[in-house]
Amino acid sequence: MSVLAQITANGTELKSALGALGAGFAYGLSAIGPGIGIGYLVGQSVQAMARQPEAAGMVRTTMFLGIAFTEALALIGFVVFILLGL
């Protein structure tokens, strides 16, 4: 109890601790969705390329575009992580 009181007495410490906690959650949670998304996207692209090798160039271009859009969410999470962690 006295430890808790000590921590709450020092507001800045609590704030930075919660900031670090939030930063960890921000990046971890923001990586889930894009992780699933990119895995699904690339898997389907590989399937498409295997089924129709002559369309591989077009599929690859679209795949990279899709990866770029999907990845943006995780990267925004990473930026938030950096901002909260500092």
Binding site: A72, L75, I76, F78, V79, I82
Partner: peptide, 13 residues
């Protein structure tokens, strides 16, 4: 925004 952040965050990471 996403164009800038994508490049920046990838390189920083």
């Amino acid at each position: 925004f996403s164009l800038a952040v994508r490049l920046f965050a990838n390189m920083l990471a």
